[in-house]
Structures are given as structure tokens and as C-alpha cells.
Nucleic acid binder design. Structure first.
Lengths: 339, 339
DNA sequence: ATCAATAATGCAAGCGCTTACATTTGCGCT
DNA sequence: AGCGCAAATGTAAGCGCTTGCATTATTGAT
């Protein structure tokens, strides 16, 4: 019985159309299973009543939500925006809805969010990076919720991933920097704890140094949260020490932009006085003056590929397969040959 | 009975703790209603089993989800990011979770998202701007889901809103531009259809012109989606006509950044050859060279205030009250006196 | 017409939780 | 010890939907 002025239910529709709730349900979920005439009658009732299925009830009965959750470290800067947008478009096309939450780079928040999303009936999860408590992976396995890692590629890890080789990408860039004659390098990195991308990027620089007979252990590294201001502070820090570097590799474009701006502030010319590089190739990288030499990450492709793979995992209960995407160096104006 | 390897339910916990499901439920939702000893026993069972309540079941039984939905026009650029972040932090503190979806500035998508969010049991909704089909407001009223509008203030509207006066803010800026001696103005606006903010900002420029004895109907306005590229295209367009403007007011910072970059491309100096202004004061505005003279919008305050108000509406069934926040002109380097 | 298939529909049992109401327990009194 | 009352706990009825299975209608071939 419909309560006064409350949302109509399946029952109301069924009654109005003179059929059973089962038929209404089938009309909505699997139309070709019900004959045209009935279907028309049902749809008429749905429209007339302005019926919208109750999601919670549906999830509960079907044990399927057509919802995918994504937990990204931050929404504030644009690092994940483009990739996520592509991801969203792709899953939407496949009938899924995206739920996004952000963990503020805090493992414990991420864990809470994972549980929340699972409790909400997410059919699958998109996670960023591999670094996390194994307990939470067990949990996911137990709940049988497929999860895919993005922004990081690591075939050996427990969860399948779609991403790129952070170490190698950064190593290629550092190689280039060194080839340009720089020997006094420094790095401004994101916080590496619980962040494999950050850690691997540092490693990449070190490996490039080692390969070029520079001493990796001499690389000054400042770790700081990904914020423009922090990039600026780190830059000042680095440049006011004696024997300052001639090239600073930044863990991402946000930090690099901070560094570039601080350089201007300090009257240093980029790249004549100091070379600076970024990572990610977000929009900002092109806008800042001088524009950033950085690593281009195929955000949209990654998002799209992740969507395809995750939906496949959900629908076929496959374990998921990892894919490595290519990155490339984008030469712009913030890196120069040392003269 | 718990099925093999499946998620534990309230029943499992109850059984293990030797109490009824009601007691377990109370332990979780209203702990002080159950005596310490029992509570401990229950909590022990919860931990041991790794129990997480099933959200759909909870929503269904309680008719309350502690979830707030927000539908923003876009996630791609940073316009809404900061405000939304503040909103999220604030509701989180009050025990609510945020669900975000984006409508890509399409009214019909927004409507679909609204229904989706309501069906998902959202306790309240945050919407952007006032322009929308009245039918959907009826729907919300019928479903008794409180909704609050942000980024726009309009006391007369049906829905309560927290925002600022788009017209007046832009009018103040245009006034300033005119006071600087500019008489040949032009505008690059977002698409105004279904977007009251965009429309009101255009109106603001026109009103300022009228007030200063310029002819509003002469204002060239190019409407285009909020994308950097589009700002650039519009700029080229405007500047290649004869008697080009000496100042271009942009509907937001994203378009303005596009214009600034296109100016550089065309060898025009900003602001010596052409003045350009933005709106929003997003991070980008400070980074671009020259930095943007723009309207500062108190994003974080707005987000926070919206959270407070919406939660109040939800918890006290109040109709909600509108608040107008102040904006201000930020003078930076992209606007100059006409000599 | 008749009958076996097959298609369309109905029936009713849950899904996992909350909560009104019923019952039991514990406690301070006399 | 016995009483009354409040606090603690239990019982069970849904919440609105999906879906396996049972039932009825339809179809085509004989």
C-alpha cells in the first residue's frame, strides 16, 4: 500500500498496471522478457507515478550495484582529474556509476573509504598505487570485490594494475638531464611513505645517476606534500645551500610549478640559471612560464583502459591482467643544457 | 547462518557474541544504550569477524543514509574543487559521506544524476546554480529530499542557496575596467543556456556599461564551453575583427587563461596591448603570466557554509535559509589603465 | 481439435538491517 | 525477602526489490 505522498514503490506500479511486482521488475531490468502489451502498460504506470527504483533495495536483492568506487589521494589538484574523467566516461557507457572519494594521501583514510565503498555495495574498486596494508587486500579478497590499481604498474604485485613504470620514466628523464651536462642534481619529491609512485621516482633518479657514474647517495631529496607552496619552499631550501644544484627534478608538476615560481621570486632564470623538471604533464605544465619539461603520462588512455579491465574483472570474475602504458619525455622550456 | 567465506552479517556477530541482532545493532548505532559488558563482548565479535555493516540494508531499514550527494557541472577544471573539498571536510566531520557526480553542464544529465542520487538514498543534495527544470524541484519536494544550491545566490528562488551575486560581482569588475578608461569591451563567456552564473555575469558587464553610458548592446559576447582552448579560440576571434576591444572580460579564469596564452601566441602584450580579466580566482590565476586580475570567490567558506546549512536542513527538516557571500576584485597584472 | 513445447507471468522467499513493542533483568526500597 | 520501576535485551515485522520455481497462456505441429 502506498503511503500518502511518499515515493511510489514497485508495488504501486504493479497495482496500477494490474500485474505482479515480478513483471514490473522484469520490465525494468530485462524488458525483452515481457511481452510488448504488458510492457507498455507497465511503463505507462511507471511514468504516471514518476517511479524511481529504490537503489538500496535493488542492491540488497540483486547483490549487484552497478557501481564502481574509486579512491584517489586527492581531488584538489588536477593530477587524477583527467584520468578519472576518462574512467568515468568509460564505465558510464557500460552502465556503471562512479563513486569517488579521496583519501588525502592517508592510508588509514583510504582503508576506511575502501570499507565504506564495499559496504555501499561497490561492484569493483579503482585504487591508486600498490602501497597498502595487505590486510585490506585480504579483506577485498574475502568480500570478493575486484580491485584494480592504476597510476602504477607492477606485474609482481598482488593486485592487477594498469599504469606505467614510474621508476623507468623518471630514470629516462634524469638520464636526459644528465646528458645535458648536469651533475649537481636535486629532487623535490612527494612524501614517499605509503606512496610507491613517489618512491619509485626517487629511485629512478638515483638509478640514472648510478648508471652515469654520479653518486646517488649524494642526491639531495626533499619530501613534501604535493602542493605548489611546498614546491616553492623546497626550492628555496635547496637553492640557499652551498653548491646548489643546477637541475632540480620534481616528483610531479605541481611541485615543479612551485619551484618555477619561487625561482622567479628569487630572481633566478629558468632554465638559464636553474633547470627544473616535472612529472605528469598536467595542464598546468603548459601554462606556467617557462613551460615545464616533464614526463607525459597518458592519463586518458590509462583511465579508459582501467575502466575496460575493471568491468571485465567484475563481469567475468577474471583475476584481471596488468598492463603497462608508455610514458614519454615532453621537452619544453624549463630544462636546458648546462653551458 | 553464515555462508562459507561470505561477508559476515549482523546475525553472525550476534550469534558469536551470544546476543540478539537488535543488541548488536544498538551497539553499533547507539552504544550507550547497551551495558558495558555486553558491548565489549559484541565489539570483540565484530573485530574477530571483521564485520562491516551492509550499507544497503542499513539504508533500507533506517531510511537514512548519512550520505549527501553533490552534482557539479565538471570535475575537469578546478573551479569547483576547492569549494567541494571544504564541503566534504565539513560534512565528514558531521558524520556524512559525500557522493559526487558531474553533469558535464548538461541539464538532462544533471536530472538523471539527481534521480540516481535520490534513489541511492542521499539524505540531501548540493546543486550548482538555480537554472533547472521546475519538474525536478517538484520531484525533490515530493521525495522530501532537501537540496541546497551553491555558487549562486538568489533569495527569490525556490531552493535556498549559498553563494554570491554573480551579476554584481562582474558588474563591479566591469566598472573597474571602465574606470581604467576602457570603452571597447568584449566578453568571453561560458555557455549561458541553463547556466545562471554565466548569464548573470554577462548581465553584470552590460549593466556596468549602461551605468557608464556605454551601449550594452554593442558588447561582443562569445559563448563557449569552459576550456582553455576555447578561451584561446574566442580571443583570436575577437582580436581579428576590426576595431578590436581593448579589454576582454572572461566568464571565468579558465577562459581567461586561454585568452592570455593566445595573446602571447599572437605577439600581443597583456596588459599593455590588451587587458584581460577572469572570474573565480582559482590557483591557475596566480600562475599564469601575467597573473590574472579576477574576482575572488570565497570557495572554501562557501563550501563550508553550504555543508553546515544542508546538514541543518536534513536534521531539522528546516526549509533552509539563503546566504550571500562577498566577492572582491583581486588586482593582479592582466588589467591596466588605458593610456 | 489436441498436445507438447515454449513463452509469459505470478508467487513468495529472502537480502541484512532497524526499531516498536514485549520481555527480562537489576536495583533501591521497604 | 519482596516490590516496583527503570534499564537492558529480545522478538519479529517490515524496508523495496530480485529471482528461482510454479503456474498459466500461447504457439505450432499433428
Amino acid at each position: 500500500m502506498s503511503k500518502l505522498r511518499s515515493a511510489p514503490t514497485l508495488d504501486d506500479v504493479a497495482k496500477r498496471a494490474g500485474v505482479s511486482t515480478a513483471t514490473v521488475s522484469r520490465c525494468l531490468n530485462d524488458p525483452q522478457r515481457v511481452v510488448q502489451a504488458t510492457r507498455d502498460r507497465v511503463m505507462e504506470a511507471v511514468d504516471a507515478l514518476g517511479y524511481t527504483p529504490n537503489f538500496a533495495a535493488r542492491v540488497m536483492a540483486a547483490k549487484r550495484s552497478f557501481t564502481i568506487g574509486a579512491i584517489i589521494p586527492t581531488m584538489e589538484n588536477a593530477i587524477f582529474a583527467r584520468g578519472l574523467q576518462a574512467f568515468q566516461e568509460e564505465i558510464h557507457q557500460r552502465g556503471y556509476t562512479l563513486l569517488v572519494s579521496s583519501s588525502a594521501y592517508k592510508p588509514e583514510v583510504e582503508e576506511e573509504q575502501i570499507r565504506t565503498l564495499v559496504a555501499r555495495g561497490a561492484d569493483g574498486l579503482l585504487l591508486i598505487g600498490h602501497d597498502r596494508d595487505p590486510g585490506i587486500c585480504d579483506y577485498l579478497a574475502r568480500q570478493k570485490v575486484p580491485a584494480l590499481v592504476a597510476w602504477s604498474y607492477e606485474a609482481e604485485e598482488r593486485m592487477p594494475s594498469i599504469g606505467f613504470d614510474n621508476r623507468q620514466a623518471m630514470m629516462a628523464l634524469a638520464d636526459q638531464v644528465i646528458a645535458f651536462g648536469h651533475t649537481r642534481l636535486a629532487m623535490i619529491s612527494g612524501l614517499s611513505e605509503g606512496n610507491d609512485r613517489a618512491r619509485l621516482r626517487i629511485q629512478g633518479v638515483r638509478d640514472a645517476m648510478a648508471q652515469n657514474s654520479l653518486r646517488p647517495e649524494n642526491l639531495p631529496v626533499i619530501e613534501t606534500p604535493y602542493e605548489i607552496e611546498n614546491g616553492a619552499d623546497a626550492f628555496r631550501n635547496l637553492m640557499t645551500q652551498d653548491a646548489p644544484p643546477t637541475a632540480i627534478l620534481c616528483g610531479n608538476d605541481v611541485l615543479a610549478v612551485g619551484a618555477v615560481r619561487q625561482a622567479a621570486q628569487m630572481g633566478l632564470r629558468v632554465p638559464e640559471d636553474i633547470s627544473i623538471t616535472g612529472f605528469d604533464d598536467i595542464e598546468l605544465a603548459k601554462i606556467v612560464q617557462p613551460s615545464l619539461t616533464t614526463i607525459h603520462v597518458p592519463h586518458r588512455d590509462m583511465g579508459r583502459a582501467a575502466a575496460v579491465e575493471l568491468v571485465k574483472m567484475i563481469e567475468t570474475s577474471s583475476p584481471g591482467k596488468s598492463t603497462r602504458l608508455d610514458t614519454g619525455i615532453v621537452m619544453r622550456d624549463s630544462l636546458a643544457r648546462l653551458i
